[in-house]
């Protein structure tokens, strides 16, 4: 699992590369939370372009980030989501809590 970050205004963009399962989500959760606090970010934006597998552990990880970001008055967003990942996102009903954007630019603008 590779995790990279870019800070745009007050939005922390998280670029994930690899597979989202129970094993990798533990690491993602710790790394993202640490960076979010360090950067004093408001919003979290996940780039899913290089996610080639995701199961329900990914949903749990996103729900957890939603809870901590909401406390700080921020929002969580996603972009570059594959049709396969979109299927489980839709199944979970998580879109009531966070939106999937078509591009990074659209997401940054909406979250600002």
């Amino acid at each position: 699992m590779r995790i990279d970050f870019i800070m745009v205004n007050r939005t922390l963009v998280v670029i994930l590369e690899g597979e989202l399962d129970h094993h990798t989500c533990v690491e993602i959760r710790q790394t993202v939370d640490r960076e979010y606090q360090k950067k004093r970010a408001k919003n979290l934006l996940f780039d899913f372009a290089s996610i080639n597998f995701m199961d329900s552990s990914g949903i749990g990880m996103l729900m957890g980030r939603y809870r901590s970001v909401a406390i700080c008055g921020g929002e969580v967003g996603l972009f570059n989501v594959s049709p396969e990942a979109e299927r489980i996102l839709a199944m979970s009903g998580i879109h009531k809590l966070m939106r999937t954007y078509t591009s990074k630019e659209e997401a940054i603008q909406a979250l600002a």
């Binding site: 199961d55 329900s56 749990g60 729900m63 957890g64 199944m91």
Partner: peptide, 14 residues
Amino acid sequence: DEERAGLGFTVMQS
């Protein structure tokens, strides 16, 4: 405390 969505069996079934 583990941030589980509680969807494991639901995903398997679908």
